[in-house]
Simulated assay, not measured.
Amino acid sequence: MYHHFAGKAGVLVDVDRGREHLAGEHDDVVVEPILSEQAAHRLAADLELQYDVYGPRSPDHVRRVDPPVPVEKAWQPAGFLDAWIFEQGTWLGRVKGKDDKVSWIPQAELRRTEQF
C-alpha cells in the first residue's frame, strides 16, 4: 500500500515496509527507512483525516473525539476512537488498537464501551 505525501513530490511511502520509494525515472530505487513502521502508520492515519482521494477533506467531513473514547466492534474491544471522517455517504471511525495500529470502522459497527 503506497501513500503520496504532500510536499514530497515524486516520493511515495510504502507504509507496510516503512520505506520510501522514489517515483519517476528510477522506479526500482528504494530509500532506506526514514520512519519506523509505526510512525509511518501514524502519519498515514493523520493524513487520512486531512485528505481523501480527491484532495483536502471538507472540514465538515471530519470530527475529532477528544479525549478518545474506548469502543468495541461486534462485542469485542476494538480500541480508542479519536476521530470520524465522512466517506462515500457513511461515517468511519478512526480506532487505535492496543498495538497502536489504526483501523477505519463504519459507524454502524462501533459501540462505546466503558473500558478497553
Rank of each mutant, 00 (worst) to 15 (best):
Y51E: 05
R94F: 07
D14C: 09
F80Q: 02
P59Q: 04
K73A: 15
G18E: 02
L81E: 05
D28S: 15
P59I: 03
Q88S: 10
A78H: 05
R64L: 12
D66K: 10
E48R: 13
D14M: 06
D27T: 06
P77R: 05
S36D: 02
V30H: 12
Y54H: 15
P56D: 09
L47A: 11
V71R: 03
W91L: 08
Q50E: 15
H41K: 11
D46C: 08
L35A: 03
D52G: 07
P67T: 02
E87Y: 03
G97Q: 10
R57G: 05
V30A: 08
V53K: 15
R19A: 05
D14Q: 06
V29F: 11
D46G: 11
P77N: 07
G18P: 01
D46K: 11
V65A: 08
R42F: 05
A83S: 14
Q76H: 13
Y54C: 10
V65P: 09
W84P: 12
E48G: 08
D16S: 08
I85A: 05
V29D: 11
E48N: 13
D28E: 11
K96H: 14
A40Q: 01
G89S: 07
G18H: 03
E32C: 11
W75M: 14
H61F: 01
V95H: 06
P56N: 09
L35F: 07
W91A: 07
I85T: 15
A40I: 00
G55V: 02
G55I: 03
P70K: 12
V29S: 08
K73N: 09
H26M: 10
D27A: 14
E37M: 11
V65K: 07
L35Q: 06
P68A: 14
V29W: 10
P70I: 04
R63N: 04
G93D: 10
G97K: 10
D28N: 13
E25K: 10
L49K: 00
G97V: 01
P70M: 06
P70H: 06
V31P: 05
G24K: 06
W84N: 03
W75L: 14
Y51C: 07
P33G: 15
Q50F: 08
E25A: 14
S58C: 12
H21Y: 04
R94N: 03
T90V: 09
S58D: 15
